[in-house]
Amino acid sequence: MALLEFRNVCASYGPIAALNDVSIVVETGEIVTLVGANGAGKSTLLMTIFGAPPCSGGKIYFEGQDISTLQTHEVSRLGIAQVPEGRRVFQSMTVEENLYMGTTPIGDRYLKEDLEKVYSLFPRLRDRRLQRSGTMSGGEQQMLAIGRALMMRPKLLLLDEPSLGLAPLIVNQIFSTIKDISKTGTTVFLVEQNANQALKIAHRGYVLVNGRIQLSGTGKELLGNADVRKAYLGE
C-alpha cells in the first residue's frame, strides 16, 4: 500500500481547471519530486491534499484512507506536515516558539527530544533559538519552517518550493538536509521549480505540464531525458 496516492485527481479554481486526471504514488521512505514550470499546478496539487481547493474528481489516499473530504487540520493530524511555499514562519515569535507551534497535532510529549533533533539538523537554529523569527535571513527561516514541520513527527513531509528566493549555497544545504531527513525514515514529497537539484536527490520524479502528468520515472532517468533537459534545465 502506498503511503500517499493521488488517483485521477482533478481540481479547479472556479471555471479554471488546475489539475486534470493526475495520478501520483508516493511509497514509504522515498523522496518523490514533482517538477514543472510556473503555473503548471504544482502548488495546487499539494494544496488539494489539505482540501484547499478540494478535488473535484478522483480521490487522495493516505495509508489507504480517503483523505479528500477531510478538513485541513484533520489531514495534518494524520501525520502529514507541510512546509508551505514562502516559508510562512510566525514572524513575531521566537524560533523556539515557532517550533513549539509545530507540535500542535501531537502535543508536547516529545518536545525536548525533538527540539534537540531539529537543532542538530540545523545548528544555526540553536544559535538563534530566542531570536524573533522575522528578523532572520530567508535561509534561516526556511530551516525553521522545515524544523517546525518536523516537530509533529510526520510520516510524510511535503515541501513546497524550499529553494524559493534563496542563495545557491543555502539551496545546496537545504537539499542535503532533505536527503538527511529522508534517511531518518520520513517520506518526502518535494515540489520544485529547481528541477536539476530536486531530481538529483529524488528517487522518483513526475513532470507536471498544464495540470497533467507528462512524464514520470526515476530521478536519474528524468535528468537524462532530453525533453526535460530542454524544458527545465535550459539546454
Binding site: 478538513q71 487540520h73 510566525f90
Partner: peptide, 21 residues
Amino acid sequence: GRAWEALREDEIACRSLGINH
C-alpha cells in the same frame, strides 16, 4: 493564547500545522 497569536500572524501556516482555525 499562542494559537490566537499564531492565527494573527499567519492563518495558512496555522492550518497547515493542524490548528483548527
